[in-house]
Write a protein that binds this DNA or RNA. Structure first.
Lengths: 352, 352
DNA sequence: GTCGAATCTGTGATCGCTCACAGACCACAC
DNA sequence: GTGTGGTCTGTGAGCGATCACAGATTCGAC
């Protein structure tokens, strides 16, 4: 093709000539011109500065500062096929999860962890079918490099669709059905064991449980409770709540008191449930912790604000977030990465 | 430059020839080819379908479905200079606001309102100086079309910088210093009047207030309280909290009880503060509402979960969100739009 | 039959960047 | 001198869309 002698090309481009002084910030060419180098060199500085002489580097950096240059992410994405953004997908039919204090912590620390890598977080809600498709189209469309999936209900149909696709995804909590999506979670089962053991050590004989097996981690917590109590975990001592809400906790406590008025301890699968139980116990005239000890799970903000303050199991949510981000970035870079389980910790306060 | 007679150009483009079967979804050219029309026509369909024949429209839509086409947002943004994304900037030095239940509601409903317009929400946190610059660079860099600014502390330096720039911005709550940024807020002052009036009507004589003037809306709530009580709003009846937290509420209540043991009502500037006050009142052995009536503000989730449940002032946060989005979209389209104030409502529960 | 307006269509040119390539320069060894 | 390999640099060719323009077709009015 190239015959060597390009006959004095008429320069059909004439880049960045009269366009100057238009709106929308400076381009890479403006910086290059000011620094007295070429586009390529500026681009090199932008992407790691390998093979750039110290002099050029300094000139470019100065020019960038002078012009207030910021890279045009669209132009970059167009060629690199990376968006430097990930979706934080909150998959919750009842919109309940949004009011879960755990969620806020997760969202905050994921945002921070991503910001450290100059990746932005795009929040997507998915509470009904239409939105599921929207999310799927969006994610599949290459708008984001990966997905952080926060799903309360473990058997989520979005998960299956995402797992099938080639978009890197990390779930928070173990998805049901071993679908092959890497996840990061606290050691729910061991945490539940810690709490149950503690209640036993405190001399409690009749330990009830307010569980929520259909919510992520809920089944494991129930198992942990059973691990410790064995045959002492009578069926009537376990009640199910429909979700992790205060109201559900109160309602479950009411049922528990009705079927087992002789209990001297309750382990609730979340702090919200425990708070609801607390309210109900007070209403029933039972003293906490004297008559009934109450244990929660999560160590969310409300654990410190109930009266009495909750003895609970701390989930290292900041750590979970950082690990989720870490795993996701590895997947995006096509490096191998596996699921991770993080340790929990007993936090003793007043309620037990 | 152009002499008119381009000498039989050798077609240097040869679009979409061998590249086929690469990864990354179909392009507009693939759709065009399959539909038997040109790029232009497909593009027209994508953007409103004006001047497209019914036949072409149908063919294109079929082809889009068959190929599973999604537009490449980067390519589009590169030429349109729109990103179809807005930043939700949470400006809070203490990271406290993130745990405010109001915030979750705001975030959720803004996300939904934006999704209805196919605009995505990018969450940005700004808790220190470094992050302020990051946010500013990001926003200025044209990564987003506009900013929803949620700032607890009204005198935020980010606000000033944003106001100076040309990036459409809407604040939640009135920023201090009338800096010219449009905002959407509840009628804090009138809401506070409603609550204070209600307490008076209930026969309360010594009505204290736990205020927080340095937080957005806080000053107005204090004014509303004073509007109604006039000279009965003794200085010793008003205590300041450093922020809207449970702990701050408890601490403020302690001070209030110390200086004014004779009070028979307290109006707290937020539900969290009220919840803290409730805890402290119980500790002090005062019955609520019999000895002391407690009024909150916000009608956030916790108002229903305290014991007794809080009588409070409802802020229409979903409405606030929708209005913020509406105003922002108008600004982005360069249509005129002004700040908006939304009405509040008294919600009577058990605490007063 | 001719004209003009309205509708419909295809074709460059362009957005701002990255990437691959090729060429220039330098040094050090042979 | 010639080679060889490392740095450093500039340039052309895209990425996948939109937009403006120009050409084609239709239709009704004169």
């Amino acid at each position: 093709m190239s015959d060597g002698t390009t006959p004095d090309a008429p320069h059909p481009k004439s880049r960045g000539a009269a366009r100057r002084a238009m709106r929308r910030g400076p381009t890479i060419d403006d910086v290059a011109e000011l620094a007295g180098v070429s586009r390529g060199t500026v681009s090199r500085v932008l992407n790691g500065a390998r093979y750039v002489s110290p002099a050029s580097l300094k000139a470019v950096e100065r020019a960038m500062r002078q012009t207030g240059y910021t890279v045009n992410q669209s132009a970059r994405s167009l060629v690199t096929k990376r968006s430097d953004a990930v979706a934080f997908v909150l998959s919750e039919p009842q919109e309940r999860l949004f009011e879960d204090p755990n969620f806020s912590v997760l969202l905050r620390s994921c945002t921070q962890a991503l910001a450290a890598h100059d990746i932005s977080l795009i929040l997507m809600l998915e509470s009904d079918e239409d939105e599921r498709d929207r999310v799927l189209r969006y994610v599949r469309g290459g708008h984001v490099d990966g997905v952080l999936l926060i799903s309360a209900h473990s058997g989520d149909s979005l998960i299956a669709s995402l797992a099938r696709g080639d978009v890197p995804t990390v779930a928070c909590g173990k998805p049901a059905g071993d679908i092959g999506i890497p996840y990061v979670a606290a050691e729910d089962r061991e945490g539940a064991r810690q709490m149950t053991r503690y209640l036993v050590e405190q001399g409690r004989k009749r330990i009830g449980m307010i569980g929520c097996p259909q919510i992520a981690g809920g089944a494991e917590r129930l198992e942990g409770y059973r691990d410790v109590l064995g045959r002492r975990a009578l069926r009537r001592l376990v009640v199910d709540a429909p979700n992790y809400s205060h109201a559900a906790g109160a309602e479950a406590m009411r049922r528990l008191l009705a079927t087992s008025p002789d209990i001297d301890a309750v382990f609730a699968a979340s702090d919200s449930l425990a708070a609801g139980a607390l309210t109900e116990l007070r209403r029933a005239g039972r003293g906490v912790p004297d008559d009934v000890a109450v244990g929660g799970f999560d160590d969310s903000r409300i654990a410190q604000e109930t009266d009495p303050a909750l003895t609970t199991i701390r989930q290292p949510l900041e750590l979970v977030s950082r690990n989720m981000v870490d795993v996701l970035l590895r997947l995006i870079r096509r490096e191998p990465s596996a699921s991770r389980l993080l340790p929990t910790e007993l936090v003793v306060r007043e309620s037990a």
